[in-house]
Every structure is written in C-alpha cells, then in structure tokens.
C-alpha cells in the first residue's frame, strides 16, 4: 500500500527533517482519506483522518526503521478505525451529511459498500438497527417501530453489533 519512499521519508522525519515530514504527512493524509472513506460513514472521515495524523505525529518514535512503514501506518489506521466504531456506541447517531451526493459521491458509495459488507457478517437484527440508528439517523424508538424489536433490544443489538464489528476488524490483518 505504501509508496516506496515512505520508509525513507519517515526515517528522515525521525531525524528532524521537516520538509520530508510535511511531504510524508500530505501523502499519508490522502491515503487515510481513501482508507476511511471505505470504512466509515462520510461524516466521520475528516475527524478520523486528523485524529490519525495526530497519532502518527505523537507516536512517530515507535516506527522502527528496520520494518516497513506501511505496516506501521496500517496498524495505527486500523486502531483508530476501531476507536471510531467504539465511539459510535456512545453517540446517539452519526450526523447526516447534507452534502453527501455532491463531490464525494463515488467514495460515499464505496464506503457504503464496504460497510454493507461488514454489516452482512452480523446477525440481521444487529445489522438492521445499526443501519437505522447509526447510519441513517433514526431514533431508538423509530428503529424499534420499524424492526419490531423492543427499545431495550435495539440498544443491546447496537452495542453487541458494534462490539462484534470491532472484534472482526481486530482479528483480521487488514492493513489496506
């Protein structure tokens, strides 16, 4: 996934070369944007990209020059992805993005496809309520009416479904 130069640029950055670092972060930022567009609702992408860039900065000393930069970056991106999924549990819903169809339409579609693929691995009752509440912005009560589940069950299924998603992601060595 990584450009061959990334290893070299990161080594230069660890030595204090700000120009290499700026160039590297620019390329990494673009890569992260593509990465999260395939894995998160569009409204969460900007935050995830910047959070990961900050993590890359804070933890740059943990990059071992003897090992590939791509694996290091991929592991951090995945960790922050799981963080976002966990955060979805504590927020009522993801804000609906009014500009969804405008410039990022293609990426939004691919995001939906990837999320859909992940959701398909959950129990239907869990996937249904996550789609309704977390992705489409319905309230717990509305989701309860639509699915026939009690409100408590909707909450339980969201919680368990998101936990299951996190576990599925962690168990896969998905760096790309």
């Amino acid at each position: 996934m990584a450009e061959p130069d990334w290893d070299r640029m990161m080594q230069a950055a660890q030595a204090g070369d700000a120009d290499s670092y700026r160039r590297l972060l620019g390329e990494v930022g673009a890569w992260l944007r593509r990465y999260y567009h395939r894995r998160l609702p569009p409204a969460m992408v900007d935050d995830a990209v910047q959070d990961t860039l900050l993590a890359v900065h804070e933890k740059r000393h943990t990059y071992d020059p003897a090992r590939p930069f791509g694996a290091w970056l991929g592991a951090i991106a995945r960790y922050k992805w799981i963080d976002r999924l966990r955060a979805m549990k504590s927020h009522p819903s993801v804000e609906l993005d009014e500009n969804l169809p405008v410039p990022g339409h293609e990426e939004a579609v691919s995001s939906a496809v990837s999320l859909e693929r992940l959701l398909a691995e959950l129990k239907p009752a869990q996937a249904d309520v996550i789609r309704l509440v977390k992705l489409q912005g319905f309230s717990i009560m509305e989701a309860s009416h639509r699915t026939g589940q009690t409100m408590s069950l909707v909450k339980v299924n969201i919680h368990r479904g998101l936990a299951r998603l996190s576990a599925m992601i962690r168990s896969r060595n998905d760096a790309g």
């Binding site: 950055a13 660890q14 030595a15 204090g16 670092y21 700026r22 000393h61 943990t62 990059y63 071992d64």
Partner: peptide
Amino acid sequence: AADLKPVRP
C-alpha cells in the same frame, strides 16, 4: 511539521 523534533526510534 513545525512541531517536529528528532526522536530516537
């Protein structure tokens, strides 16, 4: 980048 300082890996 402006905040960058050398680090020991």
